[in-house]
Design a protein around this nucleic acid. Structure first.
Length: 597
RNA sequence: GGCCCCGUGGUGUAGCGGCCUAACAUGCCAGCCUGUCACGCUGGAGAUCGGGGGUUCGAAUCCCCUCGGGGUCGCCA
């Protein structure tokens, strides 16, 4: 960054530059005014350099430097000198030298910042977002943003080198009722009609395959009007990509190679598991109760349902009678959990809809087991549970009995919770896995219909096609997920490329021919013009960068994120608009009805 | 929509019915200081405790409502 106002960066001067006359520009990070000498740590994007104002060297400059305060923007010219013996600062890359200033220009002053920029500290997140431009000035956030840049650049280079073309797709699209709630944009030219912001460029990238681009990618902004989470924002960024003439293997191995190379290049301190293991959906749900398991630790599920066929324990009995399951995990070394701690765990599983939690504290012998429901359990049942979980003395067995869905949700939540409490995860480790063979359909029992588990463009496995007519619930999709440390990083699939199959799927999902034509006519028609077989994937960039930055939320890697209630404290969005604007759009805002009166 | 946590000088925290005329750290202001690097020393200013209502002789502290932030369940094809 050599330019007119600065000859060097604050992070780059070393002993080699001693004797040079240089000009630096940046922010006052800290000042140490000794009355005589004044030391300033000057900060720019690249680092810190200590600059010295010596009254004997330049009296007037020294006087002017007395006015400097935190975050003033200054330009200084002076001589790089080796620091006097014993005053080097080994904590700074530039700590062997300092700049003796001959000339000082105050480029701008600064109000006292509302929070510290020159030291790491927890600050109220609302305040940070309100002054995001100052928050982003902190080295920590600069690191995150720069790493994000490097990740995206790596992806672009990697894919470009392999024949991918970056193509932009529209932000103003057609709204479709499936999936997440759309963000809508009213049309001025067609009052009463709306565009929708893309939830993902799914259909467009498929059309680009029909168009013959063969390998496409895009750093794509996606929008979903749903409630926020630590890893969910109203708008987020995906590496959207699609390839023609490929099967699962092409895509999975390409992604595996890209992520491994990227991590080894950009953040080599991470330990990663390679090759990435692949699990079927069925296997992973059986072992971990979730399709996005954290495989950095064990604590796998064991099924106890068969042990309690003849049980007199009312809770288990009624669960089994209604088709439920009884499963458990083993929390190592947690047998000493107090009643209060166990009650916390019970409250925890209740948030997942479980009615309760059975705990068994394992003592030194098989007879030495403590449980509140001990009298309902036979010695054989206990022995089996211990064996199946390979529980050791001092362990705590946690059992949930409920519908299969609740058992899996509650127990996998509990598994993650216990791993956190027991510190079972290594922050320097990234453990990836692929999940394959998802079911194509989800049953919506209440509405007596099938729904796409992923989206309706996912191809079924060839050998399962006959099941479409007989047993749709058994059809496996050519769909795959990419999971890291329990975080779903991306989803992808081999798509349907034949119009008949696509229509068949839509019909199975309950669409009438008219609805298909109205909503997806363009896609079906495109498939009639020589659509190649194709498939793709779309890794979430925010979540991936979050993992690389070891952050807990994606807000830390998004420059200007929204709050949990989807507002921006800095600009004050969303906001009302002038009536004229609404009038142009022929929009009327209905007054919110007061709840009480 | 439900549940949980949080809201005290600029910032981060302590205080959790009277000892609070609200404490500590840091920041800020002023003075002193020529080798500091979280510089040091001395002095000073600065919050009525998110907002409203209530209980009480007395409320930062207890209760209710409300606003804001965060986490999470539902939701997110």
């Amino acid at each position: 960054m050599k330019n007119v106002l600065k000859t060097h960066n604050c992070g780059e001067l070393t002993l080699k530059n001693a004797g040079d006359s240089v000009t630096l520009a940046g922010w006052v990070n800290r000042r140490r005014d000794h009355g005589g000498l004044i030391f300033i740590d000057l900060r720019d994007r690249e680092g810190l350099t200590q600059i010295v104002f010596d009254p004997e060297r330049a009296k007037e400059v020294h006087t002017l430097a007395g006015d400097l305060r935190s975050e003033y923007v200054i330009q200084v010219t002076g001589e790089v000198t080796k620091r006097p013996e014993g005053t080097e600062n080994t904590n700074l890359p530039t700590g062997e030298i300092e700049l003796n200033v001959n000339k000082l220009e105050i480029l701008n002053t600064s109000k006292v910042p509302p929070f510290y920029i020159n030291k790491e500290s927890d600050v109220d997140e609302f305040l940070r977002l309100q002054y995001r431009y100052l928050d982003l000035r902190r080295p920590h956030m600069q690191y995150n943003m720069i790493l994000r840049h490097r990740v995206i650049k790596f992806m672009r280079d990697f894919l470009s080198d392999r024949g991918f073309i970056e193509i932009e797709t529209p932000i103003l699209l057609k709204s479709t009722p499936e999936g997440a709630r759309d963000y809508l944009v009213p049309s001025r030219l067609y009052p009463g009609q709306f565009y929708a912001l893309p939830q993902s460029p799914q259909q467009l990238k498929q059309l680009l395959m029909v168009a013959g681009f063969e390998k496409y990618f895009q750093i794509a902004r996606c929008f979903r009007d749903e409630d926020q989470r630590a890893d969910r924002q109203p708008e987020f960024t995906q590496l959207d990509l699609e390839m023609s003439f490929v099967d699962e293997e092409d895509i999975l191995s390409l992604m595996e190679q890209m992520f491994i190379e990227m991590i080894e290049t950009l953040t080599p301190s991470f330990k990663i598991n390679k090759p990435f293991p692949r699990y079927t959906y069925k296997e992973v749900v059986r072992r971990f109760g979730t399709d996005k398991p954290d495989i950095r630790f064990g604590m796998e599920f064991a099924d106890f349902s068969d042990l309690f066929d003849d049980t007199e324990f009312g809770v288990f009995k009624s669960v089994l009678a209604s088709g439920g399951h009884i499963k458990g995990i083993c929390a190592p070394g947690s047998a000493d959990y107090t009643r209060k701690q166990q009650d916390e765990l019970i409250e925890f599983v209740k948030t997942y809809g479980a009615k309760g939690l059975v705990t068994l504290a394992i003592g030194e012998t098989d007879d030495d087991v403590k449980s509140r429901v001990l009298k309902f359990l036979t010695a054989e049942q206990i022995k089996q549970m211990i064996t199946r979980l390979d529980a050791k003395a001092g362990d705590l067995i946690l059992v949930v009995a409920d519908s299969p869905k609740v058992v899996n949700n509650a127990l996998s939540g509990l598994r993650t919770e216990m791993a956190k409490r027991l510190n079972l995860t290594d922050p320097d480790e990234l453990k990836f896995c692929y999940i394959t063979d998802f079911p194509l359909f989800d049953r919506i029992e209440e509405e007596n219909r099938w729904d796409s588990m992923h989206h309706p463009f996912t191809a079924p496995h060839d050998e399962d096609i006959s099941l479409l007519d007989t047993d749709p619930g058994k059809v496996r999709a050519r769909h795959y997920d990419f999971v890291c440390n329990g975080c779903e990083l991306s989803s992808g699939s081999i798509r349907i490329h034949q119009p008949e199959m696509q229509k068949k799927i839509f019909n199975l999902l309950g669409y009438t021919d008219d609805q298909i034509k109205e909503r997806f006519g363009h896609l079906i028609e495109a498939f009639e013009y020589g659509a190649p077989p194709h498939g793709g994937i779309a890794p979430g960039i925010d979540r991936f960068v979050m993992l690389l930055c070891k952050e807990e939320t994606i807000r830390e890697v998004i420059p200007f994120p929204k709050t949990q209630s989807a507002t921006d404290p800095m600009t004050g969005s969303p906001s009302p608009v002038p009536p004229e604007l609404l009038h142009d759009l022929r929009l009327k805002v209905e007054e919110e009805k007061k709840a009480k009166e």
